[in-house]
Amino acid sequence: MKIKPLQIVAHIILIIGVLLMVLPIWISFASSTHENVSILTEGMRFTLGDQFSRNYNEVLNEKGGWSEEVTAAKMFINSFIMALGIATLKVAISAMSAYALVYYRFKLAVPIFWLIFITLLVPLEVRIFPSYKIVSDLGLTNSYTGLILPLVASATATFFFRQFYKTIPDELLESAKLDGANAWSFFIDFLVPLSKTMIAAMFIFMFVYGYSQYLWPLIMTTAEEYWTVVMGMKIIYTESYEGVALPRTAERFAYIILSMIPPVLVVVFLQKWFIKGLIQTEK
């Protein structure tokens, strides 16, 4: 096969893209296997060192935080619970609200949809004070409920589900009705299985969204047992060591590498459906 110049150019661009994506991760990983001293003196590393088990062990098991109560492992669990809760509820709620918007023909369906859609312009960061006020008045600070609840509505997912439901032929609903399906069983027996690839795709998006929340857990949690990975990244190794000790750069890198694992796992497990959900609909 003859290789065209254009193909070479295309491949070079793609390779540059891959390097841009992969190199930072590799540098983080390589650096996380060295001693703090050597990173401090010689900068970041491209080669593997010999401190892998020591650094990772320390990160997972050492207690950190202001009162030295929380370990990184605990923070991973917290983040996982938060992300799982947010993703599950976001998908469930938006699938159901899209169902209502598409199949219950009331006059306000379209205005209500656009109202939901407009909330895309008001992300959590904009409404963070009112949200905090409500959550704190409800006594939900320092709880998983408080971490999850204000984030469970999703205009994006509602929009995608609505567009998907609109492509389902009316005959399917009519036929199901004649077969004795009620509103709930049509949703569970038809829309959910038909949109399962969509659900998987949405779940991944929302999981990553929930996992990477920073500001909300930061102001929400004062108790260290509710700290999440992303906020911990900032806090855990700075506050606990004052001045005299070396910056613990290697451990931080190890922490970063570990923090990537849960979302990567979710993507790996759901990717087959994820891709299907983005490029095709099973009909």
Binding site: E171, E174, S175, L178, F190
Partner: peptide, 20 residues
């Protein structure tokens, strides 16, 4: 009477089979 209670069965033009 609701369609589901009428005890009628219908064959549609595009069959409307349940794809899943």
């Amino acid at each position: 009477v609701d369609p589901s209670e009428r005890d009628v069965a219908m064959v549609f033009q595009n069959y409307a089979l349940y794809p899943h």
